[in-house]
């Protein structure tokens, strides 16, 4: 069952990135780090230096309830999210605000969740919660996939995107 979910999730995520954001993803097997990580990833999302670990990742979470229950989490580098928000809205990157970027990350997770669970539970469908998005550090992103479930890593233009599905009994 997990294998089927994983395959469908890969297909859904890839399709959404291409259709809405014109970004082609590469699946990363075995937790390989993407090549050519861009510089400047160590700042707070608003560009200000921060104390402690920089919060340069956006993590959006949606809960799902139905025949299958749990949470779906998407982690995406802030700078990539900002670029995607610009593509999404037809704006230059410099015109995109932090709130628009976070909103876009939540909506992206919403689309992934909705499409995935429509495939998995066609008859009844899952109830989805409203997305919650927060800025986190690289180490918190690594922690996201430590919980039991399915983790899928993608490379988008040299940056890591992580999707994690956590199932509850």
């Amino acid at each position: 069952m997990f294998d089927d979910i994983r395959k469908k999730a890969i297909s859904v995520v890839s399709n959404i990135f291409e259709t809405m954001f014109f970004i082609f993803l590469e699946l990363q097997e075995n937790g390989e780090e993407p090549k050519g990580r861009p510089e400047g990833m160590g700042k707070h999302p608003d560009g200000q230096p921060c104390d402690g670990a920089p919060l340069n990742i956006l993590r959006s979470e949606i809960g799902f309830q139905g025949k299958i229950q749990g949470k779906i989490r998407l982690c995406i580098p802030y700078q990539l999210a900002r670029t995607m928000a610009g593509n999404f809205m037809g704006l230059e990157e410099g015109e995109v605000s932090e709130s628009q970027t976070m909103d876009m990350a939540g909506e992206l997770t919403n689309m992934i969740s909705g499409n995935l669970f429509s495939l998995l539970d066609k008859k009844a469908g899952c109830r989805l919660t409203v997305p919650k998005t927060e800025a986190i550090s690289d180490s918190e992103m690594a922690d996201t996939s430590d919980k039991a479930g399915i983790t899928i890593n993608f490379d988008a233009e040299g940056q890591r995107i992580k999707l994690h599905l956590q199932f509850e009994s």
């Binding site: 399709n15 959404i16 259709t19 809405m20 919403n110 689309m111 969740s113 909705g114 499409n115 669970f117 429509s118 066609k122 008859k123 009844a124 469908g125 899952c126 989805l128």
Partner: peptide, 24 residues
């Protein structure tokens, strides 16, 4: 909506829904 419309179609028509479009 991001979800498949199967959940809402049964009561949707009665509530004035004339069309469905799934994101993306």
């Amino acid at each position: 909506t991001a979800q498949d419309n199967a959940r809402v179609v049964p009561e949707g028509s009665a509530l004035g829904i004339k069309g469905y479009l799934q994101k993306p």
